[in-house]
């Protein structure tokens, strides 16, 4: 499985560590109600098909990426720097 790192190009998955769904980027406010934090920590979509996930390029450039991939076909269709996704809102 190759992941197209925006900085390094297509790289083998052994260079990366998966974190989970990209919704981890949508962190609740510090004073958000406990239910919001509960949902953030524990409730996650588990789609059969297209999904967006956070992957860490730890053995490469050290960037966090939002990787688009398909959990059924295992096709990886894109990757962006997580900070760009976050800053874009």
């Amino acid at each position: 499985m190759l992941i197209p790192c925006p900085l390094c190009g297509a790289r083998d998955s052994r260079e990366f560590t998966p974190k989970g769904h990209a919704s981890y980027l949508d962190r609740p406010a510090e004073d958000a109600p406990p239910q919001a934090w509960n949902d953030y920590l524990h409730l996650r979509e588990n789609p059969a098909g297209d999904t967006r996930e956070l992957w860490f390029h730890g053995a490469g450039c050290g960037a966090w990426l939002v990787v688009e991939r398909n959990t059924v076909s295992h096709a990886v269709t894109g990757a962006r720097l997580a900070r760009e996704v976050r800053d874009a809102g």
Binding site: C8, A59, C61
Partner: peptide, 10 residues
């Protein structure tokens, strides 16, 4: 310049 692995070494 490439950041990658040599075996298991960064």
């Amino acid at each position: 310049a490439r950041r990658s692995l040599v075996g298991h070494m960064s």
